[in-house]
Simulated scan of single mutants.
Amino acid sequence: MGLVDKFLYCIDVKYGVVIVGFVDIILSLLCGCYLPWIRRKWDWDFTILTEAPMSTTEPPRFYTGPDFYFNRFGYSMYIFCLVVLILHIGACVMAITSTLSDERWMAAPYIATGIMRFVVLLIILTWIVTKAFDCTTTFWLIGLSLFSATYFWLTVLSWFTPPSTE
């Protein structure tokens, strides 16, 4: 007996893993493409990110308006989150493939990246809350991903572990 016998109490676990794979791909793409809490800084946009100096001897000041926040930790977490989300999308494809080919070992990368994704999104959510950013869409995307992640992970784990003979 696995951890999840039926996905949402009505769908076989095999088909539940297919649903989990597609839903998780969509959530990962949304979280990776839309994270408005960080602005990326490049050398060529220095003039966009700076305000005019008040005097000729003063260097230009960085723009610190209400819609801008630049932080090395946030930028590093954004890049790390993108790497984890790309790995997780590949793991979702492998989990879907494992149901089509009945090779349960192909779901193992999902189990590993699912934990990494959960931890990284939880750290990012904690960072956003402690910095008191007003990012309602990001809260919804990350919250929806974290809310479903545990049940999705348990569903794939139930598919991955062989059924016991009791």
Rank of each mutant, 00 (worst) to 15 (best):
Pro60Ala: 13
Tyr78Cys: 06
Tyr75Gln: 11
Thr150Lys: 07
Trp37Asp: 10
Val83Asn: 07
Thr137Ile: 14
Val129Tyr: 12
Pro109Val: 02
Ala112Ser: 15
Lys131Leu: 14
Gly32Thr: 07
Met1Gln: 09
Phe80Arg: 07
Arg40Trp: 14
Thr126Phe: 14
Ile26Lys: 02
Trp37Pro: 00
Phe46Ser: 12
Leu85Val: 05
Thr137His: 06
Pro66Phe: 10
Trp140Cys: 15
Glu166Phe: 08
Leu87Gly: 11
Cys33Ser: 15
Ala112Val: 15
Ile11His: 00
Met1Pro: 09
Met106Val: 05
Ile111Val: 09
Phe139Trp: 06
Asp5Asn: 15
Ser76Ile: 04
Met1Asn: 06
Gly16Cys: 08
Thr137Leu: 14
Val84Glu: 03
Met77Glu: 00
Tyr9Glu: 11
Ile11Arg: 02
Pro109Asp: 01
Met94Thr: 08
Arg72Ser: 13
Tyr78Leu: 07
Tyr75Gly: 11
Asp43Phe: 13
Phe70Leu: 09
Ile86Tyr: 00
Lys14Glu: 07
Gly32Glu: 00
Val120Cys: 10
Asp67His: 15
Phe133Cys: 09
Arg117Val: 08
Tyr15Ser: 09
Phe68His: 11
Phe118Cys: 10
Leu8Cys: 11
Met106Pro: 04
Val84Asp: 01
Gly21Gln: 03
Thr64Met: 13
Gly21Asp: 03
Asp12Gly: 10
Met106Cys: 09
Pro163Ile: 08
Met94Ile: 03
Ile111Phe: 05
